[in-house]
């Protein structure tokens, strides 16, 4: 897993159309993708450990997605796994995550959601575990213990929800975060909250963090979601 080269992703997916879409989107986002249509073949490739991340269909001929991830984890392969399924029921999600999946998506999905989630997963896996009490991006600093936020040295007062939101974005700074990812991370529920609730939350946070005159840190990624990143 060399950090300089293109990150490689193994896609285990039996439906050719879906697989082509996944491959196209991931390549567009700068991944190198290997596609395997068969569960058993997929398991062999997955256990080789040559990949930075794996997208895994839940329903596969011959070998079930749940089995693959269980076998992988038992073999000590820690490669992040994003499970993709047509079954959106909560129990299915729980089962997928319990078997060792790192994230769970239901078909059909917006393609940018896939790459955004994969990036977050890989970052979580590769980056050293953050045990620091302070997160900082450019001149924005948050103290996880005193739960205080400073922007350019001045204190920013945040509501608890806003703080959680900011912490999540700081932990994943530089990544595109979709509205669904934000909703799942902050509220912990898995469904479509609809309307523009998340946008409103982001808008408030932005008003407090990106005060006029300072460089913009919270960016709207058109068509996808949001990203918090330091100015270039």
């Amino acid at each position: 897993m060399n950090a300089d080269a293109m990150p490689t992703v193994l896609t285990i997916e039996d439906d050719e159309t879906t697989a082509r879409e996944i491959v196209a989107e991931l390549e567009r986002s700068g991944f190198s993708v290997e596609w395997v249509a068969d569960g058993r073949q997929g398991l062999i490739r997955a256990v080789s450990g040559d990949f930075d991340a794996i997208t895994l269909d839940r329903m596969l001929p011959r070998l079930d997605g749940l089995t693959i991830v269980t076998v992988m984890r038992n073999a000590g392969i820690a490669t992040p796994v994003l499970m993709i399924s047509a079954l959106s029921d909560v129990d299915e999600r729980v089962r997928g995550l319990r078997a060792g999946g790192d994230d769970y998506m239901t078909k059909p999905f917006a393609s940018e959601e896939l790459s955004a989630r994969l990036e977050v997963l890989m970052r979580r896996r590769n980056g050293a575990p953050r045990q620091t009490a302070v997160l900082a991006v450019a001149d924005l600093e948050i103290d996880l213990i005193s739960r205080s936020v400073r922007r350019a040295g001045a204190e920013v007062r945040l509501m608890p929800t806003e703080f959680k939101l900011l912490e999540f974005m700081m932990r994943n700074s530089g990544q595109v975060l979709t509205r669904t990812m934000i909703f799942e991370a902050i509220w912990g529920y898995h469904f479509d909250p609809g309307t523009n609730l998340i946008d409103v939350h982001l808008g408030r946070l932005r008003k407090k963090v990106d005060t006029p005159g300072l460089p913009v840190l919270i960016h709207t990624v058109r068509g996808s979601g949001y990203a918090l990143r330091a100015p270039e």
């Binding site: 909560v90 129990d91 729980v94 509220w187 529920y189 909250p193 523009n196 609730l197 409103v200 808008g203």
Partner: peptide, 22 residues
């Protein structure tokens, strides 16, 4: 199938948090 003991106070509090800004 996936029922458990739910504290409604928490649920309502979460709903308030989600909707207050809008």
């Amino acid at each position: 199938a996936c029922f458990g003991a739910v504290r409604l106070q928490t649920v309502l509090e979460h709903v308030r948090e989600l909707h207050e800004p809008s």
